[in-house]
Simulated scan of single mutants.
Amino acid sequence: MLIESGSPVAADTRVGISLTINGQRRDLQVAPWTTLLDLLREHLDLTGTKKGCDHGQCGACTVLVNGTRVNSCLALAVMKDGAEITTVEGLAALSGEGRNSLHPIQEAFIEHDAFQCGYCTPGQLCSSVGLMNEGHAKSRDEIREAMSGNICRCGAYTNIVDAIEDVMGQGGGR
């Protein structure tokens, strides 16, 4: 369904989209103004992705869209039609070891105690995988800069960078 620019949109308007979420194809009907974050949390019960600032400033809502980091609070679900979405719940599947295993970055976060309260952890994990997919960060300073969009109120930054360096040193995060 196309919605013409400037035309009023009824409150009950729904648009059909298809997303592959954590490896599972989903055909969905959503309101045109539904954010990807609200779709994941409120409609699909994937609550690992957190709603922090709801303005794209804290990174708690970071997910992977076609392998790239995206603040899901700023992305309309209809704009991601046809995309492959990976949330923190789907990271284990990226490991290649199956659903019951952890992704290497999840294992490294545990090993390096890279989380404290855990609220930012899902966004930090997804952003870490996206950072490794991008392949731009090579040094500790570059990792810190590339992760600067993810806020940790507990101050676990040093451990987060240690975890990312560890996984990168082992060949990346797949």
Results as ranks from 00 to 15, higher is better:
residue 3 I to K: 03
residue 14 R to G: 00
residue 99 R to T: 12
residue 133 N to D: 05
residue 132 M to T: 00
residue 75 A to R: 12
residue 107 E to S: 13
residue 20 T to N: 10
residue 165 E to A: 07
residue 132 M to K: 06
residue 121 T to N: 07
residue 174 R to I: 13
residue 87 T to M: 04
residue 5 S to E: 15
residue 99 R to W: 11
residue 42 E to F: 08
residue 82 G to V: 13
residue 61 C to A: 13
residue 67 G to D: 08
residue 167 V to W: 03
residue 20 T to P: 06
residue 128 S to W: 02
residue 118 G to N: 08
residue 98 G to T: 02
residue 138 K to P: 06
residue 19 L to C: 11
residue 132 M to I: 15
residue 10 A to R: 12
residue 100 N to I: 11
residue 96 G to V: 06
residue 85 I to G: 05
residue 165 E to D: 07
residue 140 R to M: 06
residue 109 F to D: 12
residue 174 R to A: 13
residue 98 G to Y: 07
residue 58 C to M: 03
residue 173 G to Y: 10
residue 143 I to C: 00
residue 109 F to T: 10
residue 163 A to N: 08
residue 95 S to C: 06
residue 16 G to E: 15
residue 138 K to Q: 15
residue 75 A to G: 05
residue 158 T to I: 15
residue 168 M to V: 02
residue 26 R to S: 09
residue 60 A to V: 08
residue 82 G to W: 09
residue 142 E to G: 08
residue 63 V to W: 10
residue 21 I to D: 05
residue 101 S to R: 14
residue 115 F to A: 14
residue 122 P to C: 07
residue 32 P to M: 02
residue 114 A to C: 02
residue 152 C to A: 04
residue 128 S to P: 00
residue 126 C to D: 04
residue 167 V to D: 04
residue 152 C to S: 06
residue 104 P to A: 06
residue 84 E to Q: 15
residue 170 Q to K: 15
residue 37 L to M: 11
residue 94 L to V: 07
residue 113 D to C: 13
residue 19 L to V: 09
residue 124 Q to N: 00
residue 144 R to I: 08
residue 111 E to K: 14
residue 124 Q to Y: 01
residue 167 V to P: 05
residue 99 R to H: 12
residue 142 E to H: 09
residue 5 S to W: 09
residue 60 A to F: 06
residue 98 G to H: 00
residue 153 R to D: 00
residue 107 E to W: 06
residue 99 R to G: 12
residue 103 H to Y: 11
residue 134 E to S: 11
residue 89 E to V: 02
residue 24 Q to D: 14
residue 115 F to D: 10
residue 156 A to V: 08
residue 147 M to R: 05
residue 102 L to T: 03
residue 40 L to T: 06
residue 74 L to C: 13
residue 133 N to P: 10
residue 146 A to G: 04
residue 66 N to R: 06
residue 145 E to Y: 13
residue 39 L to K: 07
residue 169 G to V: 14
residue 35 T to P: 07
residue 59 G to C: 05
residue 98 G to M: 01
residue 5 S to T: 14
residue 97 E to N: 13
residue 82 G to A: 12
residue 46 L to Q: 03
residue 160 I to R: 07
residue 168 M to Q: 15
residue 173 G to I: 05
residue 40 L to V: 09
residue 120 C to I: 08
residue 114 A to N: 11
residue 57 Q to F: 00
residue 11 A to R: 13
residue 10 A to W: 02
residue 98 G to I: 02
residue 46 L to N: 11
residue 132 M to V: 12
